[in-house]
Amino acid sequence: MTKTDTAPPLAGSANHQPRRRIRLPAETGAVVALAVLVAVLGWLSPSFLEPANLLSVLSQAALPGLLAIGMVFVLATREIDVSAGAVFHLAATFTALLMVAGMDPWLAALAGVTAGAGLGLINGLLVIALRLPALLVTLGTWWMIQGLSLVAGKGQTFAPTGAGSGFFTTLSGKAFTVVPAAGIVFVVLTMAMHVVLHRTRFGYRVQAVGSNPLAATYAGIPTGKVKVLTLVLMGAVAGLAGVIHLGSQGAIAPGDGGTFALLAIAAAIIGGTSLSGGSGSVIGAAIGMLVLQAIQSAMTLHGVDAIWTAFTTGALVVLALAIDRLIRLWRDWRAGHGDPLG
């Protein structure tokens, strides 16, 4: 195969044409999973397929789903933000407090989202300044943000008055009398973020930084700035989710949003975003969240206790992680990877 004498053939390289493999989009797995799941659950209990139920799955998936979308960007840069759930809660609490203080609900909502972005900015700046992985930084900020929330809300459920105002009715209302408002925001944001990830320079940079941060730096991509921006985005999205939660539920309770960060990570992974960074799928994450919520909804329909929620969330997360890793190992084994030179 290799000739060491006369020049032309490139010695040392495999001399076959690269096979044209059809590369399925990363979302395929998630879509298939969702379709199969819905079919199975529908067969197990026909009431699952009722429109009202399906829409309720959508509305329950909407808010953690927003977090999952933001998490895709963070995961794509090889980072993890575990404080997202606490940001969700603090933003909602902050907004509620502003409303109680008399601010117009829509302005308060805007302030809440901004606060979320601000917290994300703090996370990002700490990552740069401390030169630590975001996982560890957000471990600390999770504590602090949670503490702030508890102190501000005094550990109680907080329901700002003014329930008749337009803000609450809009957010708890339904468009076309069926689709919940939160669901619409979720779908619209999913599509918008999909475009951002794949068609904008920012999205390109996010993928580049996650794929090989050193190469990105050497090419002139401002790696630090990109990471900070993904965390700001995460914070803003978490804040948005918190504000919507407040609007549609009318109150913010101490436990709300506790497992959201973990769910978001699991959903993103189910949807094809990998922990090793470099690529991500927003649509996949959205579908992943629908999968998770569908499972939970089905269990409720079957009369399984709410107590199981924690158990199944945890089990699903671990399962998603395991499958992602196994697929990765399988792909590596097929490609025969290795480091050619020491």
Binding site: L135, L262, L275, T309, A310, T313, A315, V318
Partner: peptide, 16 residues
Amino acid sequence: IPSFLVTLGMLLVVRG
């Protein structure tokens, strides 16, 4: 899998 994530999931399983 990063231990952080595995044990976080396990936390929920055990608590549940």
